[in-house]
Design a protein around this nucleic acid. Structure first.
Lengths: 230, 230
DNA sequence: AGGGGGTGTTAAGAAGTCGTTAGGAAATGG
DNA sequence: CCATTTCCTAACGACTTCTTAACACCCCCT
């Protein structure tokens, strides 16, 4: 349902500034990586494919602009340059080297985060649709749509929730207790009887022979499972 | 072989600043358009599809942030905001409203041009017509115009917002919560009842058989969706 | 062969949600 | 300032979904 938090790479050698950036990003729920040198930064970028890069110029081992140029050989990841130098020529050089933004120290946390959001917005909506396909079934989790043989089948909220819970644990047995908890919520009152009723309904809507289920299988005394061949 | 020079739209009411920007852009070989008001700016943007927009806040007729929001309803064209106000909160507000960069006056020509180059770099491959077509419906997002069988149908602001929200998520189920948030704004007080009333109105204005909607479908207990045949 | 636990099936009432209408409040535009 | 449009709210019938109960079934065990 919810995508993981965007990953951001910090390339910064100064411990103090690094701490500041780390706290800012962490407080906003981003995942982050750190590199203290240009080499390390490039390696981490290649290895983890962050969704944005914060780059402080003035690294010990290589020129920041070279880093951007090297990165741009294979990646379009947005780069926000951070620098103490506010000269116009510095900004122009960095932006023309391939950086996407240029922030001059000192700057505020809120502006930094706003510019990070812009960068992430640019990173593009690379949202591949989570679609579960099994034999004649096609379940589009994003659209909340279930197709059987290309024909749409309507599921009620509980039916859909039960079905997607089984899909999430496809192939594995899910216990009665776990199903009741995930579908009906931890609250009390949920009875194993519900499962039998709704499994029946699901089978009638989805299985070819509801009385001889091929995929929505019972694991007697334990729970149910969605059988995925082999 | 060689594409025409990128087209840039200036939205600026101050004659002096306009002259400065014009000279800067012209000297770099860009084509440009000028607008002195927000209304004119929106119209020109819709008509000529510039590849980037330079927007001065503090226009006479409308708030600059509203202009960005209106533009973002149908276009992803990069917007560089220019402002005399350097407050961090101003920058954050503009960037979060959809702007891509924020320049505080005074600024140098070379930095401006460098940031324009960044913006043009971002400007992706040819945006398609900002028109949504489905069966007998034709919605021009730029003109805010809805046609049914070629006949214009008038929608109130809320109706239009609700409709375009469904269009933006065409095919997907949009939950009550999400619709209320996107159409009525995150603020409190929005009730699911609103949705029922406005969906009824939309169906009467847009559907052939309002009581048997073909496209504006209800997903009981979950939300609504704009049905686009699989 | 006869229980008995767990399971499948069906149906009907209860609970909740939705569609529709209309009228008054609020905002808009001249 | 008034006319018009738009928005909010309440009420109620119609519909969908959920819960619950009753009963049939099947396999295993003694």
């Amino acid at each position: 349902m919810n995508a993981p938090a965007p990953l951001i790479l910090l390339v910064e050698d100064e411990p103090q500034m690094r701490r500041f950036l780390r706290v800012s990003l962490e407080g906003s729920g981003y995942r982050y990586l750190e590199a203290a040198t240009g080499q390390e930064g490039l390696a981490l970028a290649a290895q983890h494919r962050p969704e944005a890069i914060l780059l402080d110029l003035g690294l010990p081992d290589m020129d920041g602009l070279d880093l951007v140029a090297r990165l741009r050989e294979w990646s379009q990841t947005p780069v926000i340059v951070i620098s103490a130098r506010g000269q116009e020529s510095d900004k122009v050089a960095a932006l023309d080297a391939g950086a996407d933004d240029y922030l001059t120290k000192p700057f505020g946390t809120r502006e930094l985060l706003a510019r990070v959001r812009v960068a992430l917005r640019h990173a593009g909506p690379e949202a591949e649709e989570p679609v579960f396909v099994l034999d004649r079934w096609r379940v589009d989790l994003a659209k909340r749509q279930v197709l059987v043989d290309g024909r749409e089948v309507h599921l009620t909220p509980l039916e859909y929730s039960l079905f997607t819970t089984l899909i999430r644990h496809a192939g594995k047995v899910v216990t009665h207790r776990q199903l009741l908890k995930e579908v009906w919520g931890g609250a009390a009152g949920a009875q194993p009887l519900y499962l039998r009723v709704y499994m029946t309904q699901l089978r009638h809507k989805l299985e070819e022979e509801p009385s001889r289920p091929k995929y929505l299988q019972t694991e007697p005394g334990v729970g149910y499972r969605l059988f995925t061949e082999s």
